[in-house]
Design a protein around this nucleic acid. Structure first.
Lengths: 197, 197
DNA sequence: GCGTTACCGTAACAAACGGTACGGTAACCC
DNA sequence: GGGTTACCGTACCGTTTGTTACGGTAACGC
C-alpha cells in the first residue's frame, strides 16, 4: 500500500473544470487538455480519474443536475405558502448564478447530447424531474383541476422558464431579471387566482 | 476566360449541407469534410466558395434566419384576423419541419455562438427580429395596452415558443405537437379576451 | 478545334485531438 | 527510516482537424 487519494474530490473538481471551460470556450473548446489546465493538473490525472472523455462529461452532467436540484429544494423550503413555493422555484430557475454561466453550460450539454445518447438520456431525465416538481408544487395551488389540466399548465411554466434562460443568456439586456421575474410572477398569479374554468 | 459557375447556388447547397450535418452529427461532428461529403464534393470546393469555416457557418446561419422569416411571413399572410395571425406565427414556430431537425440545427448554432462572436450577433439579431414580429402582431390584438405592457407579453410568448422548441426536441413524447399548440392557443386566447387590466 | 483560363479534386501540411504507456516521485506501513 | 506501492506528470501514438498549394481537367472565345 502507498499513498491514497480522494477520488470523489477529484471528480468534483474536474467536473467543475468542465463547467468552467464549457461556459468560457463553448463545446468546441471543451478538450481534455483545457479541462486539465483549468483544474490545475494534466490529462494524466483526468484520464486516471475517468476512463474517457464521455464518462467525464456524463459525471459533470449528473453533478450539475444534482446541484440544481439542491438549489431548487432550498428555494422550495424557504417559501411560506404553496403559491410562494411555486414562484420561488420557478424564479430561482431563471436566476443566473454567475454571468449566465449556468445557462451556457446547460446549452453546451444540450448540444453535446445531440451526439451522445448517454447525455441525451440524462438531459431528458433532468428535464422531466423538474417538470414533476412543478406539477407537484402546482397541485395544492389548483386542487380543483385534474391531473391533465395541471400537467398542461406545468409544461407551459417549464417552457417559459427554459425559454427565458436561453433568451437571457444571449440577450440579457432585453430579457432582464426584472422582465423574467415579472412574467413568471404574473403567470403564477394568474394560475392561482380563483376564476374557475 | 474559361468556365463560369453559379457561386450563389453553391453557397446555398453548402449551407444546406451544414444544416444536415449539424442536425445529424451535432456540433462536434460538424467538420469541413463532413459538410463536403454531404454536399457531394470535396473540401476544395468548400474553401473556394468560402474563405474559411467560420464564414461558412455564418452564411448558413444567415440563410436559416432568412428561410424562417419567409415561413413566418407565409403563416402571417395566410391568417384571417389579428388573433389568427398571431396564433399562426407562434404555432408555426413550434411546428418542426423534419424530425425536429430545425431545432437541432438551432441548438447547434446556439452552442456554436458561445465561441464565435459573429454567430452570437446573428443569433441575437434573429431573436430580436422574431420578438419585434410578435410585438407587431400583438398590437392590433391589444390596442388598449401601452408598448411596455405589450412588450412584456410578447417576450413571454417568445420565451414560451423557444422553451417548447428546446423541450420538444429532446422529449417529443412529453411535449407533443398537441401540447404545444394547445398551450400557445390558450395563451393567445387569454391575452386576446376582453377582461381589461 | 485549339489555346487559354478558371475551376476544383488531390494531396500534403502543421497543429491539436483523445487516448496509452511508462517511469520518477512521494506517501504509507512496518 | 527503508522498502513498497500507488499515483500522476511526461512523452508519445495514430487520427483528425482546418487550411494551403498544386496541377489536371473541362469549358469558353475566337
Amino acid at each position: 500500500m502507498a499513498r491514497k487519494k480522494d477520488v470523489q474530490a477529484d471528480r468534483e473538481r474536474l467536473s467543475a473544470a468542465v463547467w468552467s471551460v464549457l461556459a468560457e470556450r463553448g463545446l468546441t473548446g471543451l478538450t481534455l487538455r483545457a479541462v486539465a489546465e483549468r483544474a490545475g493538473c494534466t490529462t494524466g490525472l483526468v484520464l486516471h480519474t475517468f476512463p474517457d472523455k464521455r464518462a467525464l462529461l456524463v459525471h459533470a452532467r449528473e453533478l450539475l443536475h444534482q446541484r440544481t436540484a439542491v438549489r431548487a429544494d432550498a428555494a422550495e423550503h424557504g417559501a411560506r405558502d404553496a403559491v410562494d413555493r411555486l414562484k420561488a422555484v420557478l424564479s430561482q430557475a431563471v436566476t443566473p448564478s454567475g454571468n449566465h454561466d449556468e445557462s451556457r453550460v446547460w446549452v453546451g450539454f444540450l448540444a453535446a447530447s445531440l451526439a451522445d445518447p448517454a447525455l441525451a438520456e440524462l438531459h431528458v431525465a433532468h428535464s422531466r424531474a423538474f417538470l414533476r416538481r412543478v406539477e407537484r408544487l402546482l397541485a395544492p395551488v389548483r386542487p380543483d383541476w385534474d391531473d391533465a389540466r395541471r400537467g398542461r399548465a406545468a409544461k407551459s411554466l417549464v417552457a417559459l422558464v427554459e425559454g427565458f434562460n436561453v433568451l437571457a443568456m444571449r440577450d440579457p439586456g432585453t430579457y432582464s431579471q426584472d422582465v423574467k421575474d415579472t412574467a413568471i410572477g404574473a403567470e403564477v398569479e394568474r394560475l392561482a387566482t380563483p376564476p374557475p374554468d
